Simulated scan of single mutants.
Amino acid sequence: MIEIEVQNETNQSQERLRFAAVPRIGEGLRLRGPDGMWASYDVLDVWYQKAEYGDVWIPYLHVRMTPGENGGDLIGDGFDIQRELEPFKI
């Protein structure tokens, strides 16, 4: 497992998460937001910085919520049916 610092542009937060592989720029991730809801995030940037100890390079990710992904669309105990979903475009 690789421990990676994830810098979230949407929530202006930083946290360290463990990954099996370092995600690439443009890949999507599912992360839990501060409200406890899961949402899709796009990897904007990946970089490495040398650690203070030894010859070790630490990976960092810069992510932003995927456009059209709204973690707060739940209203009451149902979904907001007035909102029209758009297909995801690559």
Rank of each mutant, 00 (worst) to 15 (best):
R30L: 14
Y41P: 15
G28L: 13
Y41M: 13
M65C: 08
H62G: 15
T10H: 03
Y60S: 10
K50C: 03
I58N: 09
E27G: 01
R30D: 02
A21V: 11
G54R: 03
I75C: 10
R24D: 14
E15D: 08
S13Y: 06
Y48K: 11
P87H: 05
I81P: 01
A51K: 06
M37T: 13
P59F: 02
Q82N: 14
H62T: 15
L61T: 05
D80V: 06
I75T: 08
P59Y: 02
R32M: 12
E27M: 07
D80T: 02
T10M: 05
F79I: 12
P34V: 14
E84H: 12
G71H: 10
S40C: 06
P67L: 06
L44A: 09
W47K: 11
R32C: 09
I75W: 03
A51M: 05
I90R: 13
A20S: 14
E84F: 08
D42S: 14
R30F: 05
E84Q: 11
G26E: 01
P87T: 00
Q82A: 13
G68E: 04
I75H: 13
E27T: 04
R83F: 04
G76E: 01
V63I: 04
G28W: 06
I4R: 00
E52C: 03
N70P: 05
I25T: 12
R32V: 15
I58V: 14
V56E: 00
S40R: 13
E15K: 15
D80W: 03
P23Y: 05
D45T: 11
N11K: 08
E86D: 08
N70C: 12
T10F: 06
V63L: 01
Y48T: 00
E27S: 09
E5P: 02
N8S: 04
Y53N: 02
D35K: 08
A21W: 08
H62M: 15
R24F: 06
F88Q: 12
I4G: 04
P34S: 13
I4H: 02
I58E: 12
L17G: 03
F79G: 14
G54L: 04
I90H: 09
M37K: 11
L74V: 13
Q49F: 00
S40K: 07
F88V: 15
K89C: 11
V22S: 01
G78Y: 09
I58S: 01
E27Y: 01
E9N: 11
T10K: 02
R18E: 15
Y53G: 05
I25K: 15
